[in-house]
Amino acid sequence: MIIDFHMHERTFSSDSQMNLKEMVFEAKRKGLDGICITDHDEYGLAEYAMKLSKIENFPIFVGVEYLSIEGDIVAFGINDLPKRHLSAQEFIDWVNNRGGVCIAAHPFRNNSRGLEENLLTIKGLTGIEVLNGSTSNAANLKAMEYCMKLELQPIGASDCHNLISLGRYATNVPMECKTVEDLVEALKTVKCEPVILSGYKKLEL
């Protein structure tokens, strides 16, 4: 399955221009097999996304982009958020203890929201975004180097806030996923591959 792992919908992400129906239509048009909604510190879209997913017969996986003290982390497999602001390690432990998974979002983007060198000391990450559509090529390449060194899942994601950039980068998940639980299991057990959507060109690792 080709899945975009990092997307923002306008209901709970004020910096997004897209509603969920538009996102599903565009994702289908561009050849995606599923999308992930990862709003900033918010799970409010989960119920509606589940209903729309059934109506459209199209997988919509709701996660979250959590701003830890050190930087942004995308998480799947949890249904709520901590009551206090946590460090990256505390949040990763919190998610892992609940059966979820964590992915370092754009770790080297130049906006003080990436984990950067903390990747070397933090334990328990499942993956790293090595292709992020809102991040420079240089920062993505550095993320790839760290991902390979740490032997984590390499993730591609558009980090889109508009329909034009939706699906720019995505991830090939070589198993069928219908629920968030399926997606979590795939991330834990299957080697994913980041892809450039046009022509499904695979990134050479």
Rank of each mutant, 00 (worst) to 15 (best):
A157M: 08
E193D: 06
Y43A: 01
M175S: 14
K123A: 05
M23D: 01
E193C: 05
P107C: 09
K178S: 11
Q89Y: 10
K191M: 06
L81I: 10
K123W: 08
I2H: 01
N79K: 15
C192M: 14
G124E: 02
A139N: 03
V62Q: 00
A104P: 07
D15A: 14
Y43M: 15
R98I: 09
S68Y: 11
F25V: 14
D33E: 10
L86G: 02
M148G: 07
F61E: 03
V74S: 02
L205P: 11
S14A: 14
Y43T: 08
L32F: 04
G199L: 07
L20Q: 06
V74Q: 04
V101W: 09
G100I: 06
E181P: 00
I2D: 07
K201L: 06
W94M: 01
P82N: 10
L163C: 08
G133N: 06
I37R: 04
L67M: 11
E42T: 08
K142M: 13
N118A: 05
F5S: 01
M144W: 06
M23K: 04
S134C: 07
F91K: 04
N19T: 08
T121Q: 12
A143N: 02
G31P: 05
K51N: 09
H6W: 02
W94Q: 07
T121C: 00
L141D: 10
N140M: 06
L163K: 09
Y48C: 04
L166P: 03
A157Q: 05
V173S: 00
K202A: 07
E151Y: 05
A143T: 02
Y200K: 15
G124H: 08
L125E: 03
K123T: 09
L52G: 01
Q153E: 11
A46E: 12
I164L: 13
A27S: 15
D93I: 10
A88R: 11
P154W: 09
L203V: 15
K51V: 13
L166A: 05
H6P: 00
L52P: 08
E56P: 05
